[in-house]
């Protein structure tokens, strides 16, 4: 299996506070990798380092074959990112958002046009294509944001709590999109607080107090802790936390 993310003892400290400590794991191509942890456990800090937004304090990591210390610009070219805060431009239309993000990832105008039409058709949002993003329903916005994040066909897409605030049906549809992306060979790195979503992942890592305390498939984790559900796994691990969530 091809490794697309590799980290070794990755640390990030803010003064005395170790936000992320000795993080070591590997993510393989086409995998859906769940990144779990309580609020304040250090998930976002770790993810930011992998996206080239934050320089680590120590340790090693490569993303899509590029070093997080020296090649952040190359990393950015090869990843997609969807933040927990909705971050498409609300005063641009769906097509204009696609055009902008496609453009800055170096897609040609013809390619943008063709892929935009295709995407709008696949998502079944032709009626929204020329509407301002602020006027379309939240569920569609989330799906659209995901589609924009993988529009330039990145090696890896990072999703930071992508389904916050959407209804179960839309969440289900959202996960269908994630499966489709993974089937196309895009590696999905996703943080979530919904344990049913954790079950959908190929493998899961659990962060507690800045460290990874468990990493395996959902099945194995449940066996390891002798429990029935992912909820219980999460509870077993998270209750040992010293840090207070924010």
């Amino acid at each position: 299996m091809q490794t697309v993310i590799h980290t070794e003892n990755l640390c990030k400290a803010f003064g005395d506070f170790k936000a992320a400590y000795n993080i070591s794991f590997e993510v393989y191509k086409g995998e859906i990798f769940g990144f779990l942890g309580a609020n304040g456990a250090g998930k976002t800090t770790a993810m930011k380092m992998l996206c080239g937004l934050s320089i680590p304090s120590s340790g090693k990591a490569t993303v899509a074959g590029f070093d997080v210390w020296t090649q952040t610009e190359e990393i950015k070219r090869n990843i997609g990112y969807m933040s927990q805060k909705f971050s498409l431009y609300e005063d641009l239309t769906v097509l204009e958002n696609l055009k902008f993000f496609g453009g800055i990832y170096g897609m040609s105008r013809a390619e943008i046009k063709e892929k935009s039409q295709q995407l709008v058709h696949e998502l079944g949002i032709s009626q929204f294509a020329n509407r301002l993003v602020k006027s379309i329903p939240l569920g569609w916005k989330q799906k659209l944001a995901f589609s924009v994040a993988i529009f330039h066909n990145p090696a890896i897409v990072f999703l930071d709590e992508p389904t916050g605030g959407v209804d179960p049906i839309t969440r289900r549809q959202f996960w269908d999109l994630i499966y489709q992306a993974a089937a196309r060979g895009i590696t999905v790195f996703v943080t979530t607080h919904y344990m049913d979503e954790a079950e959908y992942c190929d493998r899961i890592s659990m962060m507690v107090d800045g460290e990874i305390k468990a990493l395996d498939t959902p099945e194995n984790l449940k066996k390891q802790f002798g429990v029935e559900t992912m909820d219980e796994v999460f509870y077993e691990l998270a209750r040992k936390a010293q840090r207070k969530g924010d």
Binding site: E73, K76, R77, Y81, S83, S87, L88, E90, I104, Y105
Partner: peptide
């Protein structure tokens, strides 16, 4: 404020 700058920062825009 809108958080869109975060999105810009993960793109290859220099």
């Amino acid at each position: 404020e809108l958080g869109t700058i975060e999105q810009i920062n993960v793109t290859p825009i220099k």
